[in-house]
Design a protein around this nucleic acid. Sequence first.
RNA 1: GCCCAAGUGGCGGAAUGGUAGACGCAGCGGAUUCAAAAUCCGCCAUCGGAAACGAUAUGUCGGUUCGAGUCCGACCUUGGGCACCA
Length: 882
Amino acid sequence: MLFRIPLSGPARAKAISHGQTTKGPPPMSRYSAAEIEAKWQQAWDEAGLFRATRSADKPKYYVLEMFPYPSGRIHMGHVRNYTMGDVIARYKISNGFNVLHPMGWDAFGMPAENAAMAIGGHPKDWTYNNIADMREQMKPLGLSIDWSREFATCDPEYYGQQQSLFLDMLEKGLVYRKNAIVNWDPVDMTVLANEQVIDGKGWRSGADVERRELTQWFFKISEFSEDLLASLDGLDNWPAKVKLMQANWIGKSRGLQFSFDLSTPAHGFEAVEVYTTRPDTLQGASFVGISPDHPLAKALEADDAAVASFCAEARKGGTTEEAIETAEKLGYDTGLTVRHPFDPEQVLPVWIANFILMDYGTGAIFGCPAHDQRDIDFARKYGLPVHDVFVPASGEEGHTRAENGKTAYVPPKTEAVRYIRGFAGQDVQTGAEAVDAAIAYCEGKGLGQGVTKFRLRDWGLSRQRYWGCPIPVVHCAECGVVPEAKANLPVRLPDDVTFDVPGNPLDRHATWRDCTCPKCGKEAKRETDTMDTFVDSSWYFARFTAPHAETPTVAEDAVYWMNVDQYIGGIEHAILHLLYSRFFARAMNLTGHLPEKAREPFDALFTQGMVTHEIYQTRDANGRPVYHLPEDIDRDSQTVKATGEALEIIPSAKMSKSKKNVVDPVSIVTGYGADTARWFVLSDSPPERDVEWTASGADATAKHLARVFRICADVAEMPEGAGDGDDALLRAMHKTIDEVTKGLESFGFNAAIARLYAFTNTLHKTNAGGTARRAAARVLAQLMAPMTPHIAEELWHMLAGQGLCAAAPWPKADPEMLKDESLTLPIQINGKRKAEIVVPADMPAAEVEKIVLANDAVIKALEGATPKKVIVVPGRIVNVVV
RNA sequence: GCCCAAGUGGCGGAAUGGUAGACGCAGCGGAUUCAAAAUCCGCCAUCGGAAACGAUAUGUCGGUUCGAGUCCGACCUUGGGCACCA
């Protein structure tokens, strides 16, 4: 190995005088991150430590962090995410695993096109420049990444394979076209992303956005609803909250589907089909509501200007469920009526309502205002009747709703209530029982059918944008929609495009659009939609197992490396990205690209919190906030340096450029070193929670590392020999090994680091001899290595460790050294701690009880009486109840 | 609006239902220094008390338990997601 750092005289002399046994470089005299970090990164590189190759003689371990979008700058969130993965990867290497730890770029997406529009240039150049910049910012962190596997999703080699996957899925019937609703900007004449719709207006034009239908490509994810839901049960190493969120998202429900016959048929419709999860409330129905996109609404719209103008109004605003749910509830009485299925004499009005989604159920509902908040809001607004169906099992409070209540009575389905307008089952029963009884009743009478439905909708993957993976099909006048021939893949994005006009450049690129039909050879037009960027990130984990192959995956590699043993990323991806990836893994299994075992691709998932920072804010003359950079303010006096204005300090907000509270990791690494940045983002806060970046915290971390360095340098100078404190130090060492190991195994990085602080103090204060101290210091270096690999490597060599610390086997705690001979038991009286006793660790409970009852504090509390109860929890606590 | 989380000293946080505040930051006192920086030693939840000690305390209110930060219910606040941001 070659090392480039020249040595000063004293450092060399010291290294020689302390019997350096390895071939590593002689140590330096003082901690200098800048000197050691590049040196050790080069050493790992030359040793090929992180290059992953298949191997039969080691167990494999695949650790993956969600790959970044190449914005151009890494931020602290990246540092935290990749450091966590790195800790796991390095820990697993030390434990003898063959580790795969790759990195790539989620490189398609809107920001590149926005940049092209705003500052000119080409999305491709912008993206690849950003990737180069970010790679350069990332490398100094010393991550154990196999860079030979790097790719970007915008590489034609990657998206070409994605197109191939798409064609295989098309063949298997997993892709189809249908109409779907998009945000339409009527001024720019373009489709907008949800984030481009601000308060119902287009972000550039400011025009009222409308919901408009467009023919789009879809993945049949709904075909897997049941499987995706049921399989959550097997994901034992996923956070419960993520599984719960996914389960709710998939939204399996049992309900009744039935028809309301129209009193008079209209526009060819004889009935309105509805789906309800609360058929037990059918006797409380007071209206039928249909979506503005319901076929009946559309038929009415066609020849009734009033309906048309209502529907146009109802379609205003964005497509998000949030926008629809929070918009003012609007209704239009169509004048049509339907007959109640139980009583043909009873008729209900049919309303068009803007809060009913065409995508869920049948696009039509019946409203039972007494037991649905949305329905009662609607009923009160439009003067529709409210009929109570059930009241609390005890008491009659529920009755008032029918008169003038504004709040629906919606108890949990598991709660027993008294049905006053029930028609099936007992008078008093739970909602769930009543639903089952109602379905059975209606099925028996032939009035409807019990059906299971899912909330999960098919995945619309079409995007009317340039910077994405082209959908590899052509439109032929003769043959219709034809898949592109695999031999013609990749369908490459054309380079000669401009972004001076809104809309999709592919749409107006005549020479790119023109092509020949792969089937009949005649002139045809290319599909100009590109794929949702979620497609790119739904299989990259599989591609990493054979990143440069000429097929999407390679069987041997996929079988060997899959599944991802540990996946790490932000909680914001809890639903969509993870659900789509689970779907893709299934689809890739069906199309022969992944083995059966990879249908659930992520064995363990960890969701980490964000890195936050204070916001420094003043207000302008209009009271609008003005943000200030950390370097422009004086924190002590809480003022702006330049103007002396008083500051408002807003704690703990997600770092964002616009709020000017972004801390740049590059400046931290340059100033303090990578080890300080890595240690800091792992310490203090539990990894699943947000961490607040503070300047003083970073400073303190750097000081701590320098202290560890000093302590270990002193230890390195000590002669071999025994000392009084040997046993205590070695016991502490084994305890620390045990605790840190447990911490790393369970993502308790902050707890592991706390133990390392404590052990550093122990090592500092010990009166052990040189031999024990050296052993303890080496272990300290090893235990720190996953978090702070560079300084650990330096210390390891200073302390005469063999080979590279990064390659050394993980230390093992000796169970004998973990046992304590005696322990301190707190004594509680009525649950309040009043005293404590020290007893031998193995003392039987009866003995402990005797000692406790003889204790002064206990005698005093008892005042001569006998205790009602004495609870002895072995090794834990004693509670005396008086 | 709906789904999911999280709330503990001045601050970040620790705590298999069993001594609340480990560890770190900030602060305070001391040592070293001509002085400072750096370093080292010590103190540090709140209230009362000279102290011993006592009382209070984990967002709010209620419950289960010998015992609740931890479990259950309701509420408040903050954060994440809501299908075209990634």
